[in-house]
Design a protein around this nucleic acid. Structure first.
Length: 934
DNA sequence: CCCGTCACG
DNA sequence: GACGTACGTGACGGGA
């Protein structure tokens, strides 16, 4: 049947897929011979997901083609030899993968198109036109803006990453003109990535404006003499030829001679044997298995592993499929003893607990699962409730469960046995649950932390993500058992049979992840990071969280009331000033009041079409003497303090302990910093007077004090060390005021009697450097003209040339290796570093900042890990960490002794792994509450 | 569920 | 040369 009405053609931009896959994945090689196959693996995964998506879609294509660039040389190079001249050649390890992706495409039984002298975009343009003219629908699967000129008349685009349809509206949003004028705008604006010259000095915005005004490019060029701005007029007249050349470059060729007809692109299902053979030859074990399972064909035996150094573990087995029917329910002591004996024999076991809540401080244990080998997992139901209510409307214990005391008595020696590794996903959770039941766990392994050491910056580290990414298996979602929202039930109400499948699978997944990650830690050289910076913190943090911190409810409650009163007063004033009542807490409504109704200046609409009403905007308005924004700022401060702190903190006071127990995440921040949730105790107010009163509600109990110790300028010290800046290092060694010193060096003023304003500016620059400074950012921070800020930066780099070298070196390292490193070997992946466009700036600054922030994080981690041993004979407890600060609760009278020890541990935390060229200095404070101690 | 806003280092 | 920009987090309320 000829392609036509009712048919739907998908055109996939295959080359874009390859690059996306290459940059998104760590370098992966084929085990047997080291052939780089990471991009092929990513490509196959993307295609597999695409095909699966079609299978379940009501909008599936009838015809499909995957289109590739033939080579870098095209007809455009003949028109303009500099076309794409500044594009670097593809990386060495990507080149051999190009041919393999063609092979992969054919293995999926998809039409694979490429033509000499043409870019993929030209083939897509030609087929799109043919499809449109035949009366069918066409969807281009790509996010390449160069293809947007093809949209319209039955042709659409689909951004596969964002799963976003691109129609006229999106094109308009991107280019400011409809698809038919995209070429005109691109011809004017040019393209730095492809080296299309365009008109100098004219960007996307200006180009769109000009085309909107004159209708199209030819008219614009013909009437260029009428343009009012002299510079722009001259540019257009002088560069008319270059603009026309640019048009030839950006116009896609939609009448190319292709040796394929639309009809030949009819969608075909893959031949299972062919596809599985290819995937297996690539040694993509999980994908092979997934596809083989889907087609219900047998997966061939995996290729033999390389005969390198013998693994300490049993030889890796061929993949065992996930199969819930192989999971066991352990309902008696004898069976449990057998499993425990198995664990002892092999020296490791994956363990997972099921409980009634996410908060470990209140959750009750429902059951425990164990896994000994892939597919060999069991669940011990302990506290499930039966579905039927008993006579009194209460709940009855479900049948067939072991007595919890009996089960825990059997598990206790296993968990405590240092010769048996207990493997968890997020060990801290389970360790806390066990601790509350009087069981301690030694020899802890944690797949979440392994993932963090291996893949920080590439993906998150929850079980579902890890299982999908690394095992190609999507575990049973907890929601399918518990439901969600109001009708959500707790795990003890899940029928035991269901619970077995879910819980045992989690342990199974955890075990498989551990087996996969263990060798990877060595290959990627992050074993030390995992073993010295991640794993030992599990117990330390568990103890801190369980200790909690005392917070005075009455103080918070009184503040809440006071805030509410003040807010009501402010609200009335605000409404009066506005002339009507509205929700002060709604930025949307506030924006309308300020800029539409009161017509105040400076109304700027953001992406979502709402006015920006951030503190900076309101401060500017208030400074001009407007009262309403000033009142709103006051109201906002109170509202924030009340809702986030004085109200919410009260809800976090634990009923049993009367204290607040935060939860730290070891993997929340890519740099290695901890993060704190439920509640976040790392952002308790300190900068405002009102805020400090909240901090004062954190107290020491009767007979004790709080002591707070924090690193002074740790990030700047690390910068001085890493960038090797003699002047900065010397200033730190001499104990000088670093910001004053910077100011003195930069502006040539003496340190004695320095204008505080000058010092403030130097301080802002010092901070800016850590963040990957930009003139714009510094200007905004200091509220000075951008040129002036740039002047400061130039002078800074001139005075401290090592800083620039350090920044350049860090970015080069990120580009070369795909990651940056802290002083202690923690790797932070930078997948976006080679991105083009506005994202590039973000990625560069993040890459500059990560080693500095991350090294500081590593140092305080090292201090925390050594702390329990250092203070074990002192009456002190470590309670909180706030990035560069540690808070302790200490018996009265012992404060100075504790400070002496803690300070020594903190100041010496980099050694012996790293010898810093600068001293680390820790300041200490003592108080009855946190505000006094800080 | 996303966005704007704002608390911290 | 234009573009959009300081780094890293988490919690809250509004609004679709």
């Amino acid at each position: 049947m000829a392609f036509g009405k009712g048919h739907h053609l998908h055109l996939i931009d295959g080359s874009a897929y390859i690059f996306r896959a290459y940059h998104a994945l760590p370098p992966l090689t084929r085990k047997s011979d080291g052939l780089p196959v990471g991009a092929v693996a990513g490509f196959c995964n993307m295609i597999a997901r695409y095909v699966e998506g079609n299978g379940t879609s009501s909008d599936a294509p009838t015809h499909v083609a995957v289109v590739f660039d033939f080579s870098s040389k095209t007809f455009r190079d003949d028109i303009y030899p500099l076309y794409k001249a500044n594009r670097p050649p593809p990386p060495e390890d990507l080149r051999p993968q190009f041919a393999l992706t063609r092979e992969a495409t054919r293995a999926f039984n998809l039409a694979c198109l490429e033509t000499e002298g043409l870019e993929a975009d030209d083939i897509i343009a030609t087929l799109a036109r043919q499809g449109r003219e035949a009366g069918g629908r066409v969807t281009i699967i790509s996010s390449d803006k160069d293809l947007m000129q093809l949209v319209g008349g039955g042709v659409e685009m689909l951004d596969p990453m964002k799963n976003l349809r691109i129609t006229r509206d999106e094109v308009f949003a991107k280019f400011g003109v409809g698809p038919e004028r995209v070429i005109d705008v691109q011809s004017l604006a040019g393209d730095s990535v492809d080296n299309v010259p365009g008109a100098p000095g004219i960007g996307l915005k200006t180009a769109a404006m000009l085309i909107q005004e004159y209708g199209d490019l030819d008219t614009l060029l013909a009437r260029a003499g009428e343009i009012k701005q002299p510079k722009r007029r001259q540019t257009l007249i002088e560069n008319a030829d270059q603009i026309r050349l640019s048009r030839d470059l950006v116009t896609l060729k939609d009448d190319a001679d292709l040796d394929v007809s639309l009809d030949a692109l009819e969608q075909r299902d893959a031949e299972p044997e062919v596809l599985v053979e290819f995937l297996n030859r690539m040694e993509f074990r999980t994908l092979t298995k997934r596809i083989a399972d889907k087609f219900k064909v047998e997966a061939p035996a995996a290729a033999p592993p390389p005969a390198s150094g013998a693994a300490p573990m049993a030889a890796p087995k061929a993949d065992v499929p996930f199969d819930a029917t192989t999971y066991t329910a352990i309902r008696d002591a004898k069976t449990l003893s057998t499993w425990i004996a198995g664990a002892r024999e092999q020296g490791y076991v994956a363990v997972d607990t099921e409980t009634t809540a996410l908060d470990e401080m209140v959750a009750d244990l429902v059951g425990v699962s164990l896994a000994l080998a892939p597919g060999k997992a069991a669940y011990i139901p302990l506290n499930h409730i039966s579905g039927e209510n008993d006579l009194f409307g209460g709940t009855a214990r479900a049948e067939g469960q072991m007595d919890m005391g009996e089960a825990l008595a059997l598990l206790k020696p296993l968990l405590a046995d240092p010769s048996v590794s207990k493997i968890f996903q997020n060990a801290k959770y389970d360790v806390k649950i066990f601790a509350r039941l009087g069981l301690s766990v030694t020899a802890i392994e944690d797949t979440m932390l392994m993932s963090s050491a291996l893949y920080a910056g590439l993906h998150s580290h929850g079980m579902d993500v890890l299982s999908e990414q690394h095992l190609g298996h999507r575990p049973i979602p907890i929601k399918s058992l518990l439901g969600s929202g109001k009708s959500q039930i707790t795990f003890d109400r899940v029928p035991v049979d269901e619970a077995v499948k879910y819980a045992a699978e989690d342990a199974d997944v955890t075990l498989r992840l551990w087996q996969k990650f263990r060798p990877e830690l060595h290959v990627k050289r992050v074993t030390t990071v995992y073993e010295t910076l991640e794993r030992p913190l599990v117990q330390v943090l568990a103890d801190m969280e369980r200790a909690g911190v005392l917070v005075e409810r009455d103080v918070l409650s009184r503040m809440s009331n006071a805030f509410a009163q003040k807010m009501a007063g402010l609200e009335a004033e605000i409404h009066q000033l506005a002339g009507r009542s509205f929700n002060v807490g709604s930025p949307k409504q506030l924006g309308e009041v300020l800029f539409d109704e009161m017509s105040l200046p400076g109304g700027q609409k953001g992406k979502t079409g709402a006015y920006a009403t951030g503190a900076e905007v309101l401060e500017d308005l208030a400074a001009e003497g407007h009262d309403l924004p000033a009142r709103v700022l006051d109201w906002r401060q109170l509202s924030k303090l009340k809702s986030t702190y004085t109200d919410a903190l009260q809800d976090h006071i634990n009923r049993e302990t009367g204290r607040v127990h935060t939860s730290y995440s070891l993997v929340g921040a890519v740099t290695g910093r901890l993060s704190s949730t439920d509640p976040n105790l790392q952002n308790i107010p300190v900068r405002s007077e009102e805020g400090r009163r909240i901090r004062a509600a954190f107290v020491a109990p009767e007979g004790k004090s709080l002591i707070s110790l924090d690193y002074s300028q740790i990030e700047l010290r690390i910068l001085a060390h890493m960038a090797d800046i003699p002047a900065l290092k010397q200033a730190f060694r001499d104990g000088h005021d670093i910001h004053a010193m910077t100011a003195s060096e930069m502006f040539g003023v003496p340190i004695e009697g320095m204008d505080p304003m000058i010092r403030r500016q130097a301080k802002a620059i010092n901070f800016g450097v850590i963040y990957g400074i930009s003139g714009f950012g510094l200007a905004r921070n200091l509220r000075i003209p951008r040129a002036e800020a740039q002047g400061f930066i130039d002078r800074y780099f001139e005075r401290f040339p090592g800083i620039r070298t350090y920044m350049d070196r860090t970015i080069a390292e990120a580009k070369e290796q795909g990651y940056v490193e802290t002083l202690f070997g923690r790797k932070i992946n930078t997948p976006e570093i080679n991105a083009k466009g506005p994202g590039a700036g973000f990625a560069k600054r993040a890459a500059i900042n990560a080693p500095i922030q991350g090294s500081a994080a590593d140092i305080i981690r090292r201090a925390m890990i050594r702390m329990p041993e250092a203070i074990k004979d002192l009456p002190a407890k470590m309670l909180l960490q706030v990035h560069d600060e540690l808070l302790f609760e200490v018996e009265k009278g012992a404060e100075e002794a504790v400070i002496k020890v803690v300070k020594a541990v903190m100041e010496g935390a980099a050694a012996p792994a790293v010898h810093l060229d600068v001293p680390l200095i820790v300041d200490a404070g003592i108080g009855q509450n946190w505000s006094e101690a800080h």
